[in-house]
Design a binder for these strands. Structure first.
Lengths: 209, 209
DNA sequence: GTCTATATGAAGATAGAC
DNA sequence: GTCTATCTTCATATAGAC
């Protein structure tokens, strides 16, 4: 029976509450209440609420940097791409409190702005690298203009899909299914794929619904 | 020299502040300060802050209902569609405070949830009707699955483009250019258009950048 | 209609005992 | 490490004079 450190319990509970209620609606009192510890105790471990947000963001950042380190020389298969999308949506969903009130969060924790933008740029770049890999394999045909627009669209969707999906069921905000997001993303690249791959994607993507 | 009623000045200034600073960051004190009136005066005209939000939402709702009343029997040209998108993005931009912190706003003003969802459904339906018009004119070819996915994507983009774009320049939040949003939207339908219309769209859409 | 003054309450944060 | 008690700040909102 391992005892989890209070510090880590605070982080875990904060993340869960942020995600389900929205970060601005979660007070330090609510966090400590949920953990059955005193507010004072919470402030013994973190000198401010923004320190909690900071540390959660750092985990998010680390996960994303790790995930988005896409090799730009290897040939990526569509299966690998789907898997990548799946991991991406799961990571975003795990930290969805950041995206749900993005403008608000970034304006109140302004030190996160630059770092968030950097992740966004990495994301867009990863999509570009992946699409270029598809192109060089002859699986994708697309003009430069359309490629830029597509990558922008993929990035937008990767950010906001889970928030958009949440709108459909604002009541229970606990569960998020990344499946539909992956489905949408695959359908974005679909028109630019070769005949055979289109059929392949249409089959596999359907399983995500 | 027409004198604008204080009540309307409150609405206008609130909207401007909400859009540029984010609704949660705008206090009633800030609004009255900006207007050089006393907080008490503000509360003479609106019994609570949520009444201001409510009334702004009502204007937004009215504009959207008006705009989204797309005739489902007429043939819509691509030019008309572009124009429609332009109006749509302008309307969304004018009330972008709603979208920037959507989850937060809808959770704190829960009476808006149902109404917002209704607008969202209308939006998606409008896109569907428009695409079906394109299909019946022989301008667009698309399968049922793809059409659903496309309409979802158009709706998502119509909601979040301006927030996404804002991320690129979080410093000056006053100006929003709907052009790039329209460009993205046109590129979403592009792959499903007939040869000739593709070229047409590529030309006109470029002018939006 | 508009003001000043003030009540109320909540959230973030600290001090000091155990 | 954890608690209780308390402080500060600030936002919403009201009362009553002009």
């Amino acid at each position: 029976m391992k005892k989890i450190k209070t510090r880590d319990r605070i982080l875990g509970t904060s993340l869960a509450l942020f995600n389900s209620l929205g970060e601005p609606n979660v007070t330090t009192l609510l966090i400590s209440d949920e953990l059955d510890i005193s507010p004072g105790n919470l402030y013994y471990h973190f000198k401010s609420k923004s320190d909690i947000v900071d540390e959660l963001f750092q985990s998010f950042e680390a996960e994303m940097v790790d995930l988005l380190a896409v090799p730009d020389d290897a040939d990526i298969s569509l299966d690998q791409f789907s898997f990548f999308l799946h991991l991406l949506f799961e990571a975003v969903a795990r930290y969805r409190f950041l995206y749900q009130d993005l403008v608000n969060v970034l304006s109140r924790y302004s030190q996160l702005q630059v770092r968030f933008k950097r992740i966004l740029a990495k994301k867009k770049n990863a999509f570009r690298v992946l699409c270029e890999s598809f192109q060089s394999q002859g699986v994708m045909t697309i003009s430069e203009d359309e490629l830029l627009s597509l990558c922008e669209q993929l990035t937008l969707t990767a950010c906001y899909w889970s928030s958009f999906d949440t709108l459909s069921h604002l009541d229970d905000r606990e569960s998020v299914d990344p499946g539909k997001g992956v489905y949408q993303m695959l359908h974005l690249i679909l028109p630019y794929l070769a005949e055979q791959e289109q059929q392949e994607i249409q089959l596999t993507s359907r399983s995500y619904l």
